[in-house]
Design a protein around this nucleic acid. Structure first.
Lengths: 233, 233
DNA sequence: CCGATTCATCTTGTATACGAAATGCAGAAA
DNA sequence: TTTCTGCATTTCGTATACAAGATGAATCGG
């Protein structure tokens, strides 16, 4: 039942009481990969990482295996694990899929959310609003994520939520850069307003459409930036 | 030639060439769980399984971790892993999500498949046709799965395919019983015909609708059977 | 000069050992 | 009788040891 073992809301990655070393290392490695601190196709040497974290190879191995399940690394038997190469085609597919899955969730949320839950979603929308101007881009990104997660909750389908999480991992490395500009945040928040109102009026179609457009638009922004970065240097 | 094979003489462990022991054990455990040979909430004792497969705890541990990532077992740190309990609500959600994801895939397949690929899909359809009458229910189920997998391929989106796979794991235990009756196979094959023709005429809407109906109808059949089984025994 | 082969080395996969947390039970206290 | 506590046992998490495949360089043959 607790697939939500991973609470990423706090930025701290300390070892909790109930947590195991493997979990801690998995989180730290995931963070590093998603932050792009490992180059693509970088080989993850078990012994090297064990030394780095001052543990034995065992928890490192387990962490790497879990990262492979999450789609962050690729394991070739007896030849080690490498950070997955996210070629543009795959990235595009991930955003495309994410748009559909989150749109589906928004649609279901529109017809399944209770009034109380709508209120909660509004609260989260306002949290984003507050983070619009003054907060750091990471803080806004966090508020943004909470908003989206809430919608996934309101869809009331654990399987869809799990699927969404799976896909979102692929797109995560690129969303980091998204909210650098206040402009982009404002556009994003406008979309959120549309989606929120669609959900609160139980307008399923509008919710779906709004979320799909929201993600596709953001995807295009991100991918264009990515391309510009590449061609520049 | 490998000592591993000699070592495993007395067991059922099959070691492929590229495969690792962990992989082999993961597959076998997954099969057993999906076949319902482990009761729900059954605790997976690492040492016990290690003895059963005549290996050490290490590969068993890795296998269990991967099963957890696949959503088949639930690991509580320091308290072991148990086969997940699939309460009816969760199962329903899984079918619901599967219907949407596969419908999405069918829709994309309709507008993205090449003529050659349509031909290949037709071939797979006919494989199902052949398996309709004479084959065992497991054989038909296999052909059925290949057909669905092909559609997922034709959607040309790796992320969606991965998401579909994730969700399908949850529904797999129940699809086993589905094709026991020839009647049910015929209904299923009728649906396939509709979906196939929609894809081959590039009718996206029809493909989506057909697939969604197909899966929802099958889901209802399965779930009703499940309920009957329960109330009877 | 270039390619294939062999051997040394490195890395992964698996086994085993050990410490620590969880579980279960017995016995005491209320 | 019930519940709490303390201990013994079990099982898990991690460390370490060992075996087998992969990697790469040096050598040999063309």
């Amino acid at each position: 039942m607790s697939i939500l073992k991973i609470h990423n809301q706090n930025t701290e990655v300390e070892v909790g009481e109930t947590d195991t070393l493997s979990d801690s290392i998995r989180r730290q490695l995931a963070d590093e990969i998603l932050a792009g601190r490992f180059p693509v196709n970088h080989k993850l040497d078990e012994q090297e990482l064990a030394d780095k974290f001052a543990v034995s190879r065992t928890p490192v191995r387990e962490a790497i295996r879990q990262l492979a399940s999450a789609g962050l690394v690729d394991i070739r038997p007896r030849r080690g694990a490498v950070v997955v190469s996210l070629d543009p085609a795959k990235i595009g597919q991930a955003f495309e899929a994410a748009a559909e899955l989150e749109a589906l969730a928004a649609g279901w949320a529109a017809v399944r959310a209770t009034l109380v839950e709508m209120g909660e979603l509004m609260d989260l929308y306002e949290k984003c609003e507050e983070a619009l101007e003054e907060a750091t881009s990471d803080e806004f990104a966090a508020a943004n994520r909470v908003f989206h997660d809430k919608i996934a909750d309101l869809a009331k389908n654990e399987s869809l939520k799990a699927a969404t999480r799976l896909v979102r991992v692929q797109t995560a490395p690129f969303q980091r850069a998204q909210f650098q500009s206040v402009e982009e945040r404002r556009r994003s928040q406008e979309d959120h307003a549309d989606i929120l109102s669609a959900i609160c009026t139980q307008d399923r179609e509008a919710a779906e459409r709004g979320m799909k457009n929201h993600i596709l638009r953001a995807s295009l922004t991100v991918l264009r930036d990515e391309n510009r970065m590449k061609s520049k240097g």
